[in-house]
């Protein structure tokens, strides 16, 4: 029975074998959990909103669009809302998701502020934080203006985190 193998060598062998097994097994497990296929870039498509002249001045106008998204072998169209604010000099294309916890922000005409219902965040018409917990101003979609039939038309597409 006695193999004249020292206890230390036996334990090291045991731990070594199990450790090797754990590492070999663990690498794909951890990779699967933490670094999934999502690093793959999705296709960023442009969505047409409206001719700029149709957008009222100084009045945030919501546009509902969908962007393609995929995962787990499923392709979906994920809805999003873009608030377009046209002042005399600038154009904003706000993503209506709050920069605090991602809740849907909406424009309140009576109080002339963007309000987030979850924790009371407030943004001015220009997207700046004027109250509540949000840490950053409203994010904007990337945009381009395309000349169509003599009109300037606004297109948006999502940024990587939208």
């Amino acid at each position: 029975m006695a193999n004249n193998i020292s206890r230390r060598r036996f334990m090291i062998g045991l731990i070594g074998v199990n450790g090797l097994m754990g590492t070999l097994f663990g690498i794909p497990v951890v990779t699967y959990i933490v670094a999934p296929w999502g690093l793959h870039q999705p296709e960023f498509v442009w969505r047409r909103l409206a001719p700029i002249s149709d957008i009222p001045l100084n009045d945030p106008t919501p546009f509902h669009v969908t962007f393609p998204e995929s995962g787990s072998g499923i392709n979906i169209e994920r809805p999003a809302t873009c608030y377009v604010v046209r002042t005399g000099t600038t154009l904003f294309t706000f993503n209506n998701l709050c920069t605090h916890m991602g809740c849907p922000v909406r424009w309140d005409t009576l109080d002339q502020v963007f309000k987030c219902p979850c924790h009371g965040g407030l943004y001015s018409m220009l997207g700046q934080v004027i109250g509540g917990p949000p840490p950053y101003a409203l994010r904007q979609f990337a945009r381009k203006i395309v000349r169509e039939h003599g009109q300037d038309v606004l297109y948006i597409r999502p940024n990587i985190l939208d």
């Binding site: 959990i33 933490v34 999934p36 999502g38 998204e69 995962g71 994920r78 990587i160 985190l161």
Partner: peptide
Amino acid sequence: QRAWLGSDRIGPSYLT
């Protein structure tokens, strides 16, 4: 966040 969502953004992987 990425481990939970299964992606950089919310999508079908989060549900599975």
